[in-house]
C-alpha cells in the first residue's frame, strides 16, 4: 500500500486540490484543481495495484469528463462562479454535516474493518482478468449500464434539441 511518506504527499495534494476546487472563485480553476485531484487519485490507483484503472482515471475522468466540464464552462462563459452559500445557518449546518461525515464515516469504517490484516495474496488486476470478471460475473449489470447510457443519450437529445413551433404551442 505504499509508503507512508508517499501516501501523505499524495493525500496532501489531493485534499489540497479538492479544497481549492471548492474554494476557487473561477470555475475554470476549480476544474483544473479537480483534474489535479484526479491525477493524485490515479497515482493512488497505481500504488493500490490498479494500473488499468489509473489509466482509465486519467483518460476518461481527468481527460474526457473534465474536458467536457471545461467546454461547458467556456461555452456558457460561466467562469465567474456564483460563489458560496452566504447564510450563517447554512454554513453552520454544512460544517456540522461535514464534521459528522468525516468523523462518523471514519469511525464506522474503522470499527467495521479496523485491524484486519491485508490479504496476503495480491490480486491479478490485468485488464484481461478484469474483463473476465466484468463479462462473467457482472454481465447483467454491464448490460444495465449500457441501457443507462442509452437513456442518457436519448435524454441528452431530448433536452438539447429545439422545440418546433407546434410543440411550443402544445406546451403552452
Amino acid at each position: 500500500m505504499g509508503g507512508p511518506v508517499l501516501f501523505l504527499i499524495l493525500a496532501t495534494i489531493s485534499v489540497f486540490a479538492a479544497v481549492s476546487m471548492l474554494t476557487s472563485k473561477n470555475a475554470v480553476h476549480s476544474a483544473l484543481f479537480l483534474i489535479l485531484n484526479f491525477a493524485a487519485i490515479a497515482v493512488f490507483y497505481l500504488i493500490l495495484n490498479a494500473p488499468f484503472l489509473a489509466a482509465v482515471q486519467i483518460t476518461v475522468y481527468a481527460g474526457a469528463i473534465m474536458v467536457l466540464f471545461l467546454f461547458v464552462i467556456m461555452l456558457l462563459g460561466a467562469e465567474e462562479s456564483a460563489g458560496v452559500l452566504s447564510t450563517r445557518t447554512g454554513q453552520l449546518t454544512a460544517g456540522i454535516i461535514g464534521a459528522v461525515l468525516v468523523v462518523g464515516s471514519f469511525i464506522v469504517a474503522v470499527t467495521q474493518m479496523g485491524g484486519t490484516a491485508p490479504a496476503s495474496v495480491v490480486a491479478d488486476t490485468r485488464p484481461r482478468t478484469l474483463a473476465v470478471i466484468l463479462f462473467e460475473e457482472f454481465v447483467f449489470p454491464f448490460e444495465v449500464t449500457g441501457v443507462l447510457l442509452l437513456v442518457a443519450v436519448v435524454g441528452l437529445y431530448v433536452m438539447s434539441r429545439k422545440l418546433t413551433n407546434k410543440e411550443r404551442m402544445e406546451d403552452a
Partner: peptide, 11 residues
C-alpha cells in the same frame, strides 16, 4: 460541502 455550500451548478 461543495454540494451544500456552492451555488454554482458546475462546481
Amino acid at each position: 460541502l461543495g454540494v451544500l455550500l456552492r451555488r454554482d451548478a458546475i462546481i
